[in-house]
Simulated scan of single mutants.
Amino acid sequence: MSPTDYSDLSAVYFNGTLKKSPERSNTDGLIRVSRRIMEKQGVSTRLFRTVDHDIAPGVYPDMTEHGWDTDAWPGIYEHVKAADIVVVAGPIWLGDNSSQTKKLIERLYAQSGDLNGKGQWAFYPKVGGCLITGNEDGIKHCAMNVLYSLQHVGFTIPPQADAGWIGPVGPGPSYLDEGSGGPESDFTNRNTTFMTWNLLHLARLLKDAGGIPAYGNLPEEWKAGTRFDFENPEYR
């Protein structure tokens, strides 16, 4: 047991599987590895399988204001706002992230212009990570896309913030299939554990420090003319 107390932290996991509940999701199996570690530390966790929710596609906070009849995202986003850690997880399809994972990233992007209580972008100082499953190549490609997207909209990414499992290339066993070797993979279990602890450590550091310092990253102050030591080059 870690000597550090993490029990005031909360985490939200998103599963981008294309399978509606209660169909078994292999990505859920890998999420459970990480989630159990967090819960052993007293961290409050919440899991959303996005395909189970009527989340409209789009890049605005509430898509009912842009032609859609319903949109579950505004309610789900309240859990993101309250979380210290967000883990985006999903399967590989055609070597890339699933449509559900991509839709989630787009909806997170929709909120990236919001501000937090310090006047920074809304996702300062939340910590982000990534889990990928599949039976074809693409873990690193998918993780690069997710982690780049998370940091771009304001999440802080710790070292080794991704983990994944793939079976043999082509048709073959998935993570939770009997005899797949997925749950027994030392490489996957090590990387998932390291990712989880790095998320916890960085979230703890940021929370104790009061978040990312606000100097130099306040959009409204920039708009008002503050330049945070930036100087225009002299043209002659």
Rank of each mutant, 00 (worst) to 15 (best):
R36G: 06
G58C: 05
K40A: 15
H79G: 07
M144Y: 07
Q111N: 07
I37M: 05
A89L: 03
L147Q: 01
G210V: 07
T50H: 11
A72V: 00
R46A: 13
G225W: 01
V87N: 08
D137C: 01
V88L: 00
E220M: 04
V169N: 14
D69G: 08
H66I: 15
L115G: 03
C142E: 02
A83Y: 07
T196E: 01
I31K: 11
G182F: 10
W222E: 15
R46E: 15
A56M: 11
T226E: 12
L199G: 07
G210A: 06
Q111D: 15
I92S: 00
E136G: 09
P57T: 15
G167Q: 09
L94R: 01
E234R: 02
N15H: 03
D69S: 09
M63F: 07
W165S: 07
Q41G: 08
P125N: 12
W73M: 08
S25L: 02
Y109V: 08
V146E: 13
R32C: 12
G216F: 02
N232V: 12
P22C: 12
K126C: 01
P233K: 05
P173Y: 02
M63R: 10
G216L: 05
Y148A: 10
V33Y: 13
L108G: 04
E106N: 11
D52F: 04
K102M: 10
R35N: 13
R204V: 04
N145F: 13
Y109A: 08
P125S: 13
A82F: 05
A224R: 09
E106K: 06
V127N: 05
W121C: 07
F48G: 08
R35S: 14
W93D: 02
R107T: 05
P74Y: 08
R204M: 11
D96C: 10
K40I: 03
G128M: 05
N217R: 13
V59M: 13
F230R: 03
D162N: 01
T50L: 15
D137F: 00
G134R: 05
L18I: 14
R35Q: 15
S34T: 00
N217I: 00
S34G: 10
D84Y: 03
K103C: 01
K118I: 14
Y215E: 09
G154A: 03
M63A: 03
Q100H: 07
F123C: 02
S25W: 06
E136V: 04
L18S: 06
K103I: 04
R24N: 13
D84T: 07
I92V: 15
I37Y: 01
D84P: 04
L147G: 02
G211W: 04
K118N: 15
G134Y: 04
G16H: 11
Y60H: 14
G29D: 14
D162P: 00
A161H: 10
K140F: 11
W93Y: 07
G211Y: 07
P3Y: 09
A110D: 01
E234D: 11
D54G: 02
G58Q: 05
F187T: 09
F123K: 00
T226H: 09
S98G: 08
Y148C: 12
R46G: 13
P61Y: 08
V80H: 03
Y235L: 03
D71C: 12
H66V: 15
G138Q: 06
F194C: 08
V146C: 14
H201V: 15
L131R: 00
L218I: 00
I157V: 14
D114Q: 07
Y235V: 09
S180V: 00
G210S: 04
K140W: 10
D52N: 14
L202A: 02
